[in-house]
Structures are given as structure tokens and as C-alpha cells.
């Protein structure tokens, strides 16, 4: 990984030159190596790690006080750098998703499907029943903000981007969304709609259930 011992990294990075400059250069090259493997091709976009490594390095250097030694230093640094990198990729990925799409989400309802799939009539009916139930539960169980967050998530906007757009923070938006998911799940169960029924009606394999996205 590196020939600088874990306990020496912070000392060197906060110490005198020229050792500090050398340590920064070593850190930069490790971060670049890691990001060059992890960032290109995320979200189907091509992305150059070189474009973000300086921002990532600065974020690591300004976060040194929060390194408590619970992991190796470089593991910790790569966690921070990865978040900086992925956030940049996400910004690029979502920049064309319109804000209107989520701001107009005072309603969150499925349209009745006119393109009913090739399926037995009773399955089409069941499917419509399920969708009607979901619409009703979304209306009755979720807050406006939860509907908005869920709408954004369904449009493929990651939670951190959603938080920016809702003037909130990632943790809060995650909780909002997650509470909404749990509320809907409990409401479906109260209506006697089981996972098995959902699977059959929507033709989902058991494996896809639970691995959201």
C-alpha cells in the first residue's frame, strides 16, 4: 500500500517542509491511482480521475483532524476521496435531469396503463388493482416532502443530489425516503398485499425484490 507508516502520515502532512510536500505528493499519487480505478464508467459516464484528484486531496488534507486511526490512513483517505469523486460524477450525471420533474411532484400517482401488457386478463386486473392500491397508499401515508423525495429517487437522482435540490442534507433526505419506504411497506402489508402477490402480479423474480436498483 505505502511505505509510510499509518501513525506517521498525519505528522508528515502537518509537519515541516520538505517532508510535508513529499508526503502530499505520495498521497496525491495514491488517491489518483485509486480514483483512476473507481471513477471511470460510473453511471455510464466517462470521467477522468485527474479532473477531481486535486479537490479530493484538498478535502483529505482539511479533514486530517477527523482521522482517529480506526482504519489504515490510506483507507480512510480513499473513503473521503471516493465521496468527492462520486459526487462530481453524480453532478455530471444528474445535471440534465430537470428540477421541474421533481418539484411538480405534489402528486405521485401512476397513470392507468393504456399499454396493458400481453398478459391474461386477470393478471392485468390484478396489476391495475395493485397500482390503484399503491396510489391510494402514497396519497394517504406519505408527507408531501416524502412524495417529493421518492419521486426524485425514482427519477434516478441520488440522495446527495436530491438533498442539494431540497436544501437539506443527505442524512435527512435518506431518513425521509427510508421512513417513506417503511410506511408504504407496512401499509401494503396491512392491506394484505404480500411480497409473493407483488412478485406474481408484476412478474418479478424473487431475487430482484430487496435489491433496490
Amino acid at each position: 500500500m505505502s511505505d509510510i507508516a499509518d501513525e506517521d502520515w498525519v505528522k508528515l502532512l502537518q509537519g515541516p517542509e520538505p517532508e510535508r510536500g513529499q508526503a502530499i505528493e505520495r498521497l496525491r499519487s495514491s488517491l489518483l491511482r485509486a480514483l483512476s480505478h473507481s471513477l471511470p464508467q460510473r453511471y455510464g459516464l466517462s470521467f477522468q480521475a485527474e479532473d477531481i484528484v486535486q479537490d479530493a486531496l484538498l478535502k483529505v488534507l482539511t479533514s486530517l483532524d477527523s482521522f482517529k486511526g480506526h482504519s489504515r490512513f490510506l483507507t480512510w483517505a480513499v473513503v473521503i476521496a471516493t465521496r468527492v469523486g462520486i459526487s462530481a460524477v453524480r453532478r455530471k450525471y444528474t445535471k440534465d435531469i430537470s428540477l421541474d420533474a421533481i418539484q411538480a411532484a405534489d402528486r405521485l400517482r401512476f397513470e392507468r396503463s393504456s399499454e396493458a401488457r400481453q398478459a391474461a386478463d386477470d393478471l392485468v386486473d390484478q396489476r391495475q388493482y395493485l397500482i390503484d392500491q399503491l396510489n391510494a397508499l402514497i396519497e394517504s401515508s406519505l408527507s408531501d416532502r416524502q412524495r417529493l423525495a421518492m419521486r426524485g429517487a425514482l427519477e434516478g437522482i441520488p440522495v446527495d443530489e436530491l438533498a442539494d435540490r431540497l436544501s437539506s442534507n443527505r442524512n435527512a433526505v435518506y431518513k425521509l425516503l427510508h421512513d417513506g419506504r417503511l410506511k408504504l411497506k407496512a401499509a401494503l402489508e396491512r392491506q394484505g398485499i404480500t411480497t409473493e402477490m407483488v412478485q406474481t402480479t408484476l412478474g418479478m423474480s424473487p431475487r430482484t425484490i430487496g435489491d433496490f436498483r
Binding site: L108, E111, I131, R170, L184, G210, R213
Partner: peptide
Amino acid sequence: MFLTERHITPLIQMVVGAQPDPIGCDDCFG
């Protein structure tokens, strides 16, 4: 603004796959 056919499967997955989660993104990051 309405949801369409393509949203149904992701929504169902979000809902049916939900399990209690006592921590959040900040604790996870830490």
C-alpha cells in the same frame, strides 16, 4: 406529474425491500 409504467418496478423494489435501518449515511461514512 404522474408516474408511468417504467417507475413501477423500482418503486415496488424500494418499498418491499425496505428494512429497519438504525443508522444513516453519516454514520456509515464514518
